[in-house]
């Protein structure tokens, strides 16, 4: 199993060396230069990450990093996984691709089938990966994307291991990548159309007040809930906020390491391997280099272990209370 780790402008050449030493096999990143930002702002990102520190913003830096990655014999994928591009954006998008192909980029990750078709037409030798945000939830969706000659499917976050197993079994011959760390959300990238950049927090991360009501059988009417129902919904909401990793709550019981690592699926790695997953994704674009180092080393430890059972994985994670809570897990 390979480890694919997200990188960005905060990463230095020596950090790449350290990540490779720790076990990183592949890297992925986005690019959004001033030419794009001047026309569309960073909010209308090329790659669903809207902050400059979550990607590369100039050609010189990204070329240096690509060269460094290649010097270790490792691969790098460029991510253009916005849901929507409009026609006037394509000249710049295709310019990015031409330049990055000249730099020797190894693959491209996409969501949008129009962009995918244009890449196939202009860069037929560039392997394409289908983004987790494309929403490949079933075997038929893999068949849909196969018509584009893709090389890899990145499966979405909201699948169980047994569902992943079924998809891969039905469609052998492709590479499959799964999320293993970071950036989990209650809402699914493929079907979340919220803007994440115009306000300090996206709607789902705001401290929203939620008031539950009950439907009444008569047409369109609602009733207030009982005090007992109120307590039940409040307890459920508090737990949901922990699951959602709301800062105001988790800061009280997360260690520094847990704040770096957050959600993980370490204890599912063995099962994912059995299911046929080839690559584990650490969704680390925008995180601090230290966070990337910790994540890669933890995942590598589990991959390399002869007995990566739950006990071992818990010891790698180093906070059994977090594991026992079961609210910081991928694939549960």
């Amino acid at each position: 199993m390979k480890i694919n780790v997200g990188i960005d402008e905060k990463i230095k050449e020596q950090d790449i060396e350290r990540l490779v030493t720790l076990g990183a096999d592949e890297f992925f990143c986005g690019i959004m230069t001033d030419a794009w930002v001047d026309n569309y702002g960073s909010q209308m990102s090329t790659n669903r990450r809207t902050s400059p520190v979550e990607q590369f913003t100039d050609y010189r830096t990204i070329k240096r990093i690509i060269d460094k990655i290649h010097s270790f014999g490792k691969k790098v994928t460029i991510v253009f996984n916005a849901h929507t591009y409009i026609e006037e954006q394509y000249p710049l998008l295709m310019e990015y691709l031409r330049i990055l192909c000249d730099y020797g980029i190894d693959a491209v990750t996409v969501t949008n089938i129009d962009l995918l078709s244009r890449i196939n037409s202009e860069h037929p030798d560039l392997p394409a990966h289908i983004s987790g945000d494309a929403g490949v939830y079933n075997s038929e969706a893999v068949r849909f994307y196969k018509r584009f000659g893709i090389k890899r499917i990145i499966l979405p976050r909201h699948l169980t291991v047994s569902e992943i197993k079924e998809i891969i079994k039905s469609n052998p011959g492709l590479e499959y990548e799964c999320f293993i760390m970071e950036m989990r959300c209650a809402f699914e990238g493929a079907y979340c159309f919220l803007s994440h950049s115009w306000t300090q927090k996206p709607l789902c991360q705001e401290e929203n007040k939620k008031m539950y009501y009950k439907y009444l059988p008569s047409l369109g009417r609602a009733a207030r809930i009982t005090p007992a129902e109120h307590l039940k919904t409040e307890d459920n909401k508090n737990r949901y906020d922990v699951w959602c990793h709301k800062d105001s709550i988790v800061q009280t019981f997360m260690s520094v390491k847990d704040r770096y690592v957050q959600q993980c699926g370490l204890c599912q790695i063995a099962e994912l391997r059995k299911a046929g997953v080839n690559v584990l994704k650490i969704a680390a674009r925008g995180t601090e280099p230290d966070s990337k180092f910790i994540s890669v080393s933890m995942v590598k430890k589990v991959i390399s272990s002869p007995l990566p059972d739950e006990k071992f994985c818990k010891s790698v994670r180093g906070n059994p209370e977090i594991c026992d809570l079961k609210y910081m897990c991928y694939y549960r």
């Binding site: 169980t160 539950y212 737990r239 949901y240 699951w243």
Partner: peptide
């Protein structure tokens, strides 16, 4: 709670929340 592999009791047919 909040797992994909556990069946719900379809409480969405009974309750909704106003934000």
């Amino acid at each position: 709670k909040f797992r994909l592999d556990v069946s719900c009791a379809k409480e969405c047919r009974e309750y909704f929340a106003y934000w």
